[in-house]
């Protein structure tokens, strides 16, 4: 297996996902199978081939610097799980 337990846990941490024992085992197996399959890409000679990041050829999409009405504060916070005096509340951010 190419991907280790440690890597799965590292990736889960970066993704902010908590895995239980069962999930860890399962993802370890599945990710390895998929990544093994993806490794077929290594065979292809891509020297000098540009990358395709967009499926369009557009090279400029700009907006004028003209203000538009911002949403009402109530609308900004309408879906917020926790709010106080116009601000969204979260557990303490430690710096």
């Amino acid at each position: 297996m190419k991907i280790t337990d440690q890597e799965v846990l590292h990736v889960a941490g970066l993704s902010r996902l908590k895995l239980d024992e069962h999930e860890l085992k399962r993802f370890l197996r599945e990710l390895n199978a998929i990544v093994d399959y993806m490794d077929m890409l290594a065979q292809i000679d891509t020297a000098g081939v540009p990358e395709t990041v967009h499926a369009t050829m557009l090279t400029r999409a700009l907006r004028q610097d003209i203000p538009e009405r911002s949403q009402e504060r109530a609308a900004a916070l309408a879906n917020a799980p926790s709010q106080r005096e116009g601000k969204i509340v979260v557990p303490r951010v430690i710096e």
Partner: peptide, 20 residues
């Protein structure tokens, strides 16, 4: 305005009032 939307980029507005 902000870099990717039409909200005012100016400081000093009521919290979350310059959002979209």
């Amino acid at each position: 305005t902000k870099i990717f939307c039409g909200c005012s980029a100016r400081a000093g507005l009521a919290p979350n009032s310059s959002t979209c």
